[in-house]
Design a protein around this nucleic acid. Structure first.
Lengths: 191, 191
DNA sequence: CGATTCTTTGAAAACAGTCAATCTGTGTGG
DNA sequence: CCACACAGATTGACTGTTTTCAAAGAATCG
């Protein structure tokens, strides 16, 4: 599993084997069964987490008990609750595995140590943050501009083959529509 | 106007007067009349911009010619198009002044020079980026979870007195609803 | 195979959007 | 200073979309 992470790192920047060893030394592998929590609402999130294998989701639960999917993450994506990590506050979100998954965890303290010693890693993380921000701005733009059908098409476009791994009711939740509406949208599009 | 920016910087981190001078040296003040563009769709955005005075908005225009407000920014907020800045691509957004405004501009090149020489500034910018990301994630969560009325109440809650400076049709656009719907929501809430 | 979860479908109700008209306030030019 | 134009906000009637509730199929898992 370290190999997957190392391949990812090498594809994004250049690291010596000593540096990779340093990263390995503070990385912890965690296996998750389908439906298993990685983070539960109320807990504080203290890691940087990289998905080696599988698929996870971040979601909130509203007053009525309804789930709202904020993000998905598959192999080679990062996942976590940045708000909780940044402020040390209890998380308002849950993260769980949609498939059996393997994630690589590095505690905030260790990660900060790594980024201070490895400028390439620091730059990489910063770039990812910028891209994440841009992506979420674009998602907001899509949310306020488009109808259910347009949002679904844009989602399929953006997620490609990954979308086939996601239950429809979770995609509906991600788009902010009901599963019934998504089912009808799909029926429309089949023609 | 530099004073406003310096006060802001000092309130967030500690800078020597030489360092502030270095920042001043690459800062450009730009005055904007109400309705004047700061950025037009198709142009490349090359700055980091700080609002000293006034109020601006970032918005897109869809195929039907409708405007969709992505963000507002008032005094002591940063504004710009990070996607265009990061990738050097033509912007898909417009930024214009809602009130007569004054912004402080620093080109990307100069800003990178500053952050490489001033770690406090680098940390500050990184913190802002993280907070911006968290804020936009929360906005997405609100978008997919709430009705028009709930979104409007959350908006007023979050923007406080600033909301009084914004035309209603722009708030409606920000929330992804029509001006008529917002007007009716407000009528409801008056009781 | 039986149980559970997910998806689809139907009908009715709630909600938001569209179009058109009116009202309000602001600012400009005569 | 008034009159007028203009942009923004409100209202009403109507349309269309999405949700809700309920039930029936399909798929998945132990």
């Amino acid at each position: 599993m370290f190999t997957i992470f190392q391949n990812y790192l090498q594809s994004k920047a250049s690291f010596t084997s000593e540096q990779l060893e340093m990263i390995n030394a503070v990385s912890v592998i965690k296996k998750l069964r389908k439906n298993q929590y990685l983070l539960q609402e109320g807990d504080v999130w203290r890691y940087n987490a990289f998905v080696c294998q599988g698929c996870l989701r971040t979601y909130s639960i509203d007053e009525k008990g309804l789930e709202h999917v904020l993000n998905f993450a598959v192999e080679n994506w990062w996942i976590g609750d940045r708000e909780s990590l940044l402020n040390g506050t209890p998380s308002r979100f849950n993260i769980d595995a949609i498939e059996d998954s393997i994630v690589l965890l590095i505690t905030k303290e260790n990660f900060d140590m790594l980024t201070s010693k490895l400028p390439q890693l620091n730059d990489l993380v910063n770039l990812i943050l910028q891209r994440s921000f841009v992506a979420s701005q674009n998602r907001i733009n899509s949310n306020i501009s488009h109808t259910a059908e347009e949002k679904y098409k844009a989602f399929i476009e953006k997620y490609g083959p990954i979308s086939l791994r996601l239950p429809q009711h979770m995609i509906a939740s991600y788009l902010g529509i009901t599963p019934e509406t998504l089912s009808r949208v799909r029926k429309q599009l089949k023609k």
